Amino acid sequence: MYQKNTIKTIRWGIIGLGAIANDFASDLNRVSNTVIQGVASRSSTKAKDFAKKHKAQKFYDSYVDLLADESIDVVYIATPHHLHLEWTLKAIKAKKAVLCEKPLGLNALQVRQMMNAAKSEKVFLMEALWTRFNPTMEAVLKQLKSNPIGKLRLLKADFCFHALDQSTEHRIFNLELAGGSILDIGIYPVFLAYILFGKPQEIKAYSQFHQGGSELQTSVLLNYQDCQAQLFSSFAFRSEMKAQLYGEKGQLCIDADWFQSDSYRLLTQEGEQVYNHPKKGIGFCHEIEAVNTALRKGKTEEARWTLQNSLELIELLDEIRKQVGAIYDFE
């Protein structure tokens, strides 16, 4: 266990060395008092090459061996979705702090298992929803407290990119790997609605499916007492990916790509005002710094994105998948 203010350099391990892990590792090397202590892949060659590229101290061809490394403080889990539960639980059992890629679990049952394990072992656990820590997102949430566009009435947000050239074996379409847009990218607009409005009173969702059987694109309507959220995710085309928030006295637009944007704008009767908030590196630095700070303070959660937040978010995604029939055989 960590003692408050005793750690100066946070030593990270990475499990699962795909594209997102590459970006994450690049940003780890941009954060002060942070070192990549070890990386693990089931391919020794891949682990070695990754370690060389990102200046990791050690590399492993076994996830288990990385978790046994006592010099590692915190593990970033970047495996495909269906492996999050297994390796998060094993990391927690090994007394490692854990930052697990979104979605934290495939469903609420899995997330509760992780929460209970982390609380039992008294170790840090957080879902890697990097957008929550993006400077633009932080600024938007702060700005909205002053009610700049009046009573909020509508959110429009999407996350779409073209992937129809990928085979049905690709992770985004492979049902055995929990493929489909909802958990992969649909989580982002649902997260935005949740962080702005909380839990809705009513959910309506509609999906269309890929030829291999996985969910291809989904429309979601979240109904609240005084406002609504219109959300969409798709692997069939690329959208503008702006997030638009409408109030009775104006609009707030988070510029493209909204989930990693460097700016937003207010449109009111007084005109348009642009606010720039550049992110560090690729954008993972802020999330990394949040974890590092929490560990240095001896905390087991980060207040801006708690385990309860992750549970409530996955419950919304559970209901969406239930309504459209995007359920996996292994659940």
Rank of each mutant, 00 (worst) to 15 (best):
D262M: 12
A326Y: 00
K249L: 15
G298I: 03
L316T: 10
E240V: 10
D257C: 14
S310K: 05
I314F: 10
S310H: 13
K299L: 11
I282Y: 13
R321H: 09
E302K: 12
C253K: 01
K322W: 15
A326T: 02
L307K: 04
R304L: 12
A290Y: 00
Q244P: 04
N309K: 08
L307I: 10
S263Q: 08
H286A: 09
N309C: 13
V324H: 10
I288Y: 00
Q273M: 04
S239E: 08
Q273A: 06
Q308M: 13
A294F: 10
A256V: 03
T293M: 08
R321N: 11
Q260H: 02
D262S: 13
L266S: 02
I314L: 05
N292S: 06
A294V: 03
A236V: 03
Q269G: 10
Y246E: 15
R296M: 14
S239V: 09
T293P: 08
R238D: 12
G250P: 06
S233Q: 02
S234R: 00
Y264K: 05
S310C: 12
L252D: 05
E301S: 11
F232T: 07
L267T: 10
I254H: 00
T293F: 08
D318R: 03
S239R: 07
K242H: 12
L311F: 13
N309T: 15
F232N: 04
C253R: 01
I282N: 15
A326F: 00
D262E: 15
R238G: 13
L311C: 14
K297H: 04
D262T: 15
L267C: 06
L267W: 12
G281Q: 06
S263N: 02
D318E: 15
F259H: 15
C253P: 01
K242T: 15
A294I: 05
Q269W: 04
A243G: 02
S261R: 12
T268D: 12
E289Y: 00
E302Q: 13
T306C: 04
E312F: 06
S234P: 03
F284S: 09
K279D: 07
Y264Q: 05
